[in-house]
Deep mutational scan, measured.
Amino acid sequence: MGFKLLSKLLVYLTASIMAIASPLAFSVDSSGEYPTVSEIPVGEVRLYQIADGVWSHIATQSFDGAVYPSNGLIVRDGDELLLIDTAWGAKNTAALLAEIEKQIGLPVTRAVSTHFHDDRVGGVDVLRAAGVATYASPSTRRLAEVEGNEIPTHSLEGLSSSGDAVRFGPVELFYPGAAHSTDNLIVYVPSASVLYGGCAIYELSRTSAGNVADADLAEWPTSIERIQQHYPEAQFVIPGHGLPGGLDLLKHTTNVVKAHTNRSVVE
């Protein structure tokens, strides 16, 4: 069995187990497998329904001669939608809004960016022009300005110390501490036991640490421990890039980060 097929099978099995364990909360999309990078042309966006009122959005972007996937989250909030992270750029984010209108038909009224990198804030200006209120932590807003990236308009308070959590509509926002970046936030959907790890969490097929220019490698494993301790009931975990899975993604990420750190020390 090929690795790609095995990865998709694991996603399907995880979703099936969740649907059985929580039949009222989960209505997993039966329309197909989780979209992969090879299936999404740059400039297009796919939506994948995880649970009743919960979707991931998947886009792709060219970077350094390669094409990478990027995940975000959409959560229903009454007759409105909360968006977590842009679709990595203005063109993708405009396509995301169009796809949401086509498939869901509810307005996106608020959006949260989970850290300051372009795959999370690139497209904020498109959201703002569409009347979406954009939010991020003060740290993310400051770092985005320093980096020359787009800056969300509103500040999220109460997320300055490791372990801080605040309720934001249908989700809980959690600051686990520094990891992929010093400002990275985690998003949890309690009604569906869905954990969105953003770039602080890796997919299972990833074996290298990737972009760690703004990471705190020493603190990252401790931050992941905080996530595990705060959300032990999480059933569906979405990484910032690639295929979702279960809580095993947290341990896998820790292993990859520690291996990278150990290699760096040896070198």
Rank of each mutant, 00 (worst) to 15 (best):
T153G: 09
S56N: 15
S223K: 01
V194P: 02
L97Q: 02
L13H: 14
L185E: 02
G53R: 09
S223R: 02
A133R: 12
D164H: 12
R206I: 15
G89N: 03
A136S: 09
D214P: 06
G105W: 05
E233D: 12
S27A: 15
V108W: 03
K258P: 06
F63H: 07
A179R: 02
G72C: 02
A213L: 11
G210A: 06
T60P: 04
K4D: 09
F236G: 04
G210H: 04
G2C: 08
I20C: 08
T14M: 05
A133Y: 12
I227V: 11
I17R: 08
G245Q: 02
T86C: 01
D79G: 11
S193T: 10
T86Q: 00
A90I: 08
A200S: 07
T86V: 01
Y48A: 15
G2Q: 15
G210T: 03
F236W: 12
F116S: 05
H117D: 00
D79M: 12
S208A: 10
L83G: 02
G163C: 02
E233C: 04
P23I: 07
V187Q: 01
T153F: 14
G245M: 03
A21F: 14
I74K: 00
W88F: 01
A215I: 03
L6H: 07
E233G: 11
R263Q: 14
G245V: 02
T207M: 12
T134Y: 00
K4R: 05
L195F: 06
M1T: 04
I224Q: 01
A129F: 09
T93D: 01
W88T: 00
V28I: 14
V37E: 15
G43F: 07
G240R: 04
P23A: 11
T254K: 11
E233N: 12
T14C: 08
H180E: 01
D125Y: 10
F63E: 13
I40E: 14
R142F: 13
G123V: 03
L127Y: 04
D119W: 01
S181D: 00
A51F: 07
A144N: 04
D248E: 14
V11S: 08
E44S: 10
Y202V: 15
G240H: 07
N262F: 08
I186T: 14
E147G: 10
G72Q: 00
G163K: 07
D214T: 04
F174I: 04
V121I: 07
S7F: 08
H117N: 01
L249P: 02
E233I: 11
P232M: 09
P23E: 09
H241W: 00
E150V: 03
A200I: 08
R167T: 12
